[in-house]
Design a protein around this nucleic acid. Structure first.
Lengths: 194, 194
DNA sequence: GTCTATAATCGGATAGAC
DNA sequence: GTCTATCCGATTATAGAC
């Protein structure tokens, strides 16, 4: 699955990231991780205390990567509204869902404060970052000042997370694209053309 | 868990509905279902061919119940926009998530056409029903005719599904309420007061 | 660091008695 | 219809050899 030039610890972490994305925490076994990583039991238990320890490292890394990727759109070129659009319209593996959001449905992730924390922090950060951009758009008169930035930021983020859910249920990217286009249409109405 | 005045088959179905909601398909074992239902193995395998058969019956029933409940709001009193608001604002067990939407993250549900079908049908129906209401609002001049009803309907539904995800990640209903308030704010801007 | 051996429990069922 | 016995592989490790 991986080049053996990467060390076992690293292969185990990346394999866990992949499997958590695809199957969630309850659906991912240590054996599946070992096979995906091309590592034996002894190797895994040498580097990590167990499944939950490895999962914690993997989830934290996925959360960091997601934030870094989002920040590229948020701090890119264009007006505030253009940057939000770029974030919403960026290429995504829609049918795979969100590697962080999918874990919010996992009972053992939600039951574990440690595992849930990276989810909480990630979405909290995204909402604040989007709210800042919306407020910036209002300050620049790109966007109607009546909108509540925090509420609208939560709406935008929910559209993405819900879009993934609808797409997976339909086995089609169409509902995701519709949901994104719909919220852009609602925002555009309130965007002052310059 | 249940009164024994209800027959075992019924207790098994309702228990499966509860456990699928709470733990998903991969996280729910036949033994857990039997214990929740107060039924033995023999009883379960007498009434159902196995876990997937029982899950199919349970998921179909949950889907029917969800549609019936939504239709109560959709066909209630008030203008089209008021009925959409009533649907969005109705009381929900937000931290438990959506019993249908949560299954869209389950790898074995998505891998099984039979299990996925009720999800697909439910969300398809909801989107069409919401789009009808939005079009009705436009016909009555309550709502801006520039909005695309199908896209906006997908957005509204995605806000709910994503709101659940954000709430569970935060272990708080607040992000859900913000997301709903945000989309209502966006819609209100396009709503003509009468 | 990684391998193999061992083990207790669970998962998902089948078979036959009652 | 429900119960108990049985089954085989998976789960989630631990122990000790190499």
């Amino acid at each position: 699955m991986y080049s053996m030039r990467m060390d076992a610890s690293e292969r185990l972490i990346e394999s866990t990231q992949e499997l958590l994305w695809e199957r969630g925490y309850v659906g991912t076994s240590p054996k599946a991780i070992q096979q995906h990583a091309g590592a034996g039991q002894g190797s895994m238990y040498h580097h990590f205390a167990g499944k939950s320890d490895l999962a914690l490292v993997a989830v934290r890394r996925s959360a960091e990567q997601l934030r870094a990727l989002a920040e590229t759109q948020f701090s890119g070129p264009g007006t505030a509204i253009e940057r939000i659009s770029a974030y919403l319209l960026r290429e995504r593996e829609v049918l795979r869902g969100c590697r962080i959001g999918r874990l919010a449905q996992d009972p053992e992730v939600i039951a574990s404060p440690n595992l849930r924390q990276p989810l909480d922090e990630t979405f909290d950060w995204l909402r604040h970052r989007l709210a800042e951009l919306l407020a910036e758009g209002q300050a620049q008169d790109e966007l109607d000042g009546d909108l509540d930035p925090a509420d609208t930021a939560a709406t935008i983020l929910a559209v993405l997370q819900g879009g993934y859910v609808l797409a997976r249920a339909a086995d089609s990217v169409e509902p995701f694209n519709q949901a994104v286009n719909g919220v852009l249409g609602l925002l555009a109405a309130r965007t002052v053309s310059r």
